[in-house]
Amino acid sequence: MMSEPVVIANRPHLARLLLLFWLAEVAVGLLFAAGGLRLFGPSENGGAAVLILMGLVLTAAGVVMAGLCWRIARLRGAAIEMTAEGLLDRRLSERRLPWAAIRWKVMFNGRSYAVQFDLSEPVRSEAAICWPQRALGLFSRMLRHPEFTLSTLGTGISAHELGKRLERFSSASS
């Protein structure tokens, strides 16, 4: 017996608010970097370099997170659809990902719980994952976590609740 399709609507309100926060972080990061550049000179003892580095890190993180929030904030309709054919998370990709290619689990990622997953080839290469998710995926892989995140932002449900819905179609990996 096949499970009934699961459709999770996009709820963009929090993403819109967070978008403002991440854009402010980009601005603060640029101010730090500009301040460091102004201080940079022959008598500088390393503080300017730290300001520049901090500013660039804040700016990069803000750009990625603003990109993710922007995608969620402007999405109309369903955010996630789960059917017997696969998973479609329109905040991640416009392509349906077959269950056989997904290895997922609910895990604590250092800040909170998240549904994270890897995709097997050739699905991974053909999935056309959006750039913010690919950037976050690089960071996840550095931490030896599954590459992609099934974001709870814009769904109104927790990672554990999302995992329960995923289990209707595919078992979690260990």
Rank of each mutant, 00 (worst) to 15 (best):
W22L: 03
L68P: 00
Q116E: 05
H160M: 05
G36I: 09
M1T: 11
G154T: 05
K164F: 02
I8P: 09
A66N: 05
A34W: 14
S112L: 11
R90C: 01
L37P: 04
S151D: 05
V7P: 01
H160L: 13
G137K: 05
G62K: 02
G55L: 12
M65A: 08
F40A: 15
M82K: 04
W70K: 02
H145A: 11
P12S: 07
R134G: 01
A61L: 13
D89Y: 02
V106E: 12
L30Q: 11
A9Y: 02
R95I: 02
A48R: 05
L51F: 12
E94H: 04
G137Q: 08
A49W: 13
S174H: 07
R124W: 05
L119E: 10
A66Q: 00
L119G: 05
A79L: 10
F148M: 03
P146Y: 00
G110H: 02
G35V: 09
P146E: 00
T155Q: 03
E161Q: 15
G86V: 03
A48G: 14
M1Q: 07
L162T: 04
R74I: 08
A66W: 01
T155N: 02
G29V: 13
K164C: 09
F148V: 03
R16D: 00
S151R: 00
A172M: 11
I157Q: 03
A101S: 15
T59M: 14
A78C: 03
E147F: 04
M82E: 04
L18F: 14
S174E: 12
R103G: 13
H13Q: 14
V64N: 03
C130S: 12
G36A: 09
F148W: 12
D89F: 07
W70L: 12
D118Q: 06
W99Y: 06
T155S: 12
M142G: 02
V115S: 07
E167H: 06
M107G: 13
G41K: 06
G35M: 14
G29W: 11
L97Y: 02
P132H: 11
M54H: 08
G36N: 09
S171Q: 10
S171G: 09
